[in-house]
Design a protein around this nucleic acid. Structure first.
Lengths: 153, 153
DNA sequence: GCGATATACTTGCATATGCTCCTAATTAGG
DNA sequence: CCTAATTAGGAGCATATGCAAGTATATCGC
């Protein structure tokens, strides 16, 4: 590459993944709307059903989300009684988050819609490409950027 | 698949792309921070440099972003004098957004950091996989979900 | 030309995102 | 034990995200 060449900013991986996230989120949210859940909320409830009970920190790590972000995202769910948050049994600092009955019911309603969204996505994008994409995205989310981080302090 | 089988929610494409977006954004933002730009702002300025001048609606479409979201995202940039917004010459309703000199300078500073981030990403994720990923993400962003939309009104 | 329709944008609302700084509880060293 | 470093979580700040509803301008039909 010539020294003077302007780098091609259209090749930005960050922009690509953010644009796709916006586009796909709007699609899924459209389906989930009747259930009264957003994709983020749906993901949280789904994760809780699998995990049973988790602290905010571990749940945040599972969802590749900042702790403080998750803490706030839990608020609307708790307000609606879809989750319950109690003190951690071993560590008094931590808080255990668990799915309530109402939350499980809401999740079931959401799942019916999610199946449509997921199916719709795969129909238009193709099963093969969908699988490839999800595999690559999972790999990205699992990457440890620590070694290449800007801040080495 | 058995009728009673619970669908595997961990295969959600929406969750996958959102998690990846969060993870990658944090990585790029770390690098961009010294330039005083966030990835979203960097993308907007970069787009404006290429486009020269665009209305909010077309710019939003280019960035796969809601018009109202973009409208608000422009505010901090205008406040800092990195962009200028004037009335559209042909259509009086529209507003033309363009890069200022200060914006171009800021963008140049950001590009230096972006190169590090982009390079770091490709180093840890691999050039081949990075290319495949970006291609798939571009395809996703270009998909017209209209036909498979939940709302057919 | 005028009323109907469409388009460009803004505002209000609610959630999403993560950083920095703070407090409380835990754990490590001595 | 008791202090120091660590960890779990919250609060404040700023931006990001998009829907619904509203206003202003353009364009279409006649």
């Amino acid at each position: 590459m010539p020294v003077d060449a302007r780098p091609d900013l259209t090749l930005c991986h960050c922009l690509a993944v953010r644009q796709a996230a916006r586009h796909v989120t709007r699609f899924y949210d459209q389906f989930l709307a009747p259930s009264g859940l957003r994709t983020t909320q749906f993901s949280i409830l789904a994760k809780l059903r699998r995990a049973g009970s988790e602290t905010i920190t571990t749940l945040a790590r599972d969802l590749v989300m900042d702790r403080t972000t998750l803490g706030r995202n839990l608020r609307p769910l708790e307000r609606e009684g879809l989750i319950a948050i109690g003190k951690g049994s071993v560590d008094q600092r931590s808080r255990e988050v668990r799915l309530t009955e109402a939350g499980a019911a809401r999740l079931r309603a959401g799942i019916a819609r999610w199946i449509e969204a997921q199916g719709g996505f795969e129909t238009v994008f193709g099963n093969r490409r969908s699988s490839s994409l999800r595999a690559l995205l999972s790999a990205v989310s699992a990457v440890d950027f620590g070694a290449a981080s800007a801040d080495m302090s």
